[in-house]
Nucleic acid binder design. Structure first.
Lengths: 227, 227
DNA sequence: CCTTCCCGAATTTGATCATATTCTTGCGGC
DNA sequence: GCCGCAAGAATATGATCAAATTCGGGAAGG
């Protein structure tokens, strides 16, 4: 999400601005489900907990509201949004509309190093599942897809899809916490095979099934939580 | 983009926060092509021109960078992004992937008032074309689609697509300024007919053609501008 | 006498600004 | 060509003001 500059900056020894640090930290917490849906997010609370001033915190919050990771209530308060069934359906549609294309493009650009990084994320994911580590599952499941987005070299589409993850992250954590990591199969092996073979159609198809399986759990969990 | 609260606030007599006003103003200027691609945007300049302090301006800029309407350069400066051919292709793909679905959903929810608003926007659009008014063309072309997004009652998809408009707005202005408004046909009549008939498939198909026609101009203009 | 409702003060939170600090950059001298 | 200086711009802080929520006291009604 336009963080290339920051990454370069950090890599070259420069110090990142406080608002970037706060943004990153809060973003990761939302993405990995460490904030519950509906939980209020206060500027002063974040400023106290991060040690930053109000202005950088304010900027980080504005950014995340723009991405749908936080919502601006009519009281001017900010909170983690509660995902309803309609919203979940839209997110699933958007993922299915965009991510298979990213997989297709990644099949044309993936090299050995990319495949190795994907395999590493998938292995870490499997270990987290075996351990029953929900946090690790969420982190490495997203990590696998995030590597694929970078490999696809489609920054606009990648930005859009990353925004979708932010919207269902908190709810996915709730759902996974209820059902555990046992019943969460994925199609990552099929995706990697297709990428290795350079078969875009197969990669897109495998991604479609991976999303369908992952989002089916979310859909069911949200329906159960609402009823 | 999550501005429902603000709108209600403003409608009920409350005053909108300065950062919302600045955000809206700058967003509209980008959307309607009043800022050229590559043009720098300085915090102090905006603060001076809008009369607001630096903090609200800062928040507005952060929001727009998150939406891809502005880019954060590695110098910590902010500017209007320059759209290249690859980025344009991604935007076109994303529009084609998402907007037909919005048209399909709008066909199921459009009532007489919605059709009237669409017809009003389209009429204003036709007048702008006849007048050769590029600014009016951009404003009412977006207005037509924006009304449709609201009618579709799919806020997540609408947010995503609105973000796409922000990304190609400045470049579209350049292209339209080069070729004029004469050769810019659209499929708005077909879309409205399909919505009136409640035919989702026809609405989606008409939307696909409308996007194809509008984006073909952008694609050609960008290729010409780069070559 | 107890319960309920309403009103207003205290507290919490958000919004804004003026200012100090840091960073980048461009220029001029060496 | 290189180094340092000065100007412009972004970053960050804390203070100050305004809005909203909460909580507690008191009156009305049962």
């Amino acid at each position: 999400m336009g963080e290339r500059a920051l990454t370069n900056k950090a890599a070259s020894g420069g110090r990142a601005p406080a608002h970037q640090i706060v943004y990153r930290a809060l973003r990761d917490r939302i993405l990995h489900g460490e904030m519950a849906p509906g939980q209020p997010v206060t500027i002063q609370g974040l400023a106290d907990s991060t040690g930053a001033g109000m202005t950088p915190v304010r900027e980080a919050i504005r950014r995340l509201t723009s991405e749908g990771a936080l919502v601006f209530q009519d009281n001017r308060r900010v909170s983690v949004p509660v995902l309803d069934a309609r919203g979940a359906e839209e997110l699933i549609f958007a993922r299915q509309a965009l991510e298979p294309e990213l997989a297709r493009r990644a099949a044309a650009t993936a090299g050995p190093d990319a495949l190795a990084r994907l395999a590493a994320e998938d292995a870490a994911l499997d270990r987290a599942i075996a351990r029953g580590d929900v946090g690790g599952y969420l982190r490495h499941n997203h990590g696998f897809h995030a590597v694929l987005y970078v490999v696809a070299r489609a920054p606009v589409l990648a930005d859009l899809v990353e925004g979708l993850w932010l919207r269902f992250g908190p709810s996915l954590r709730i759902v996974c916490g209820r059902v555990g990591t046992g019943s969460l199969p994925d199609r990552h092996k099929e995706i990697m095979d297709a990428l290795a073979a350079g078969d875009g159609d197969a990669a897109a198809a495998a991604m479609r099934e991976d999303i369908e399986q992952g989002m089916a759990a979310l859909r069911a969990g949200i329906a159960a939580g609402e009823g």
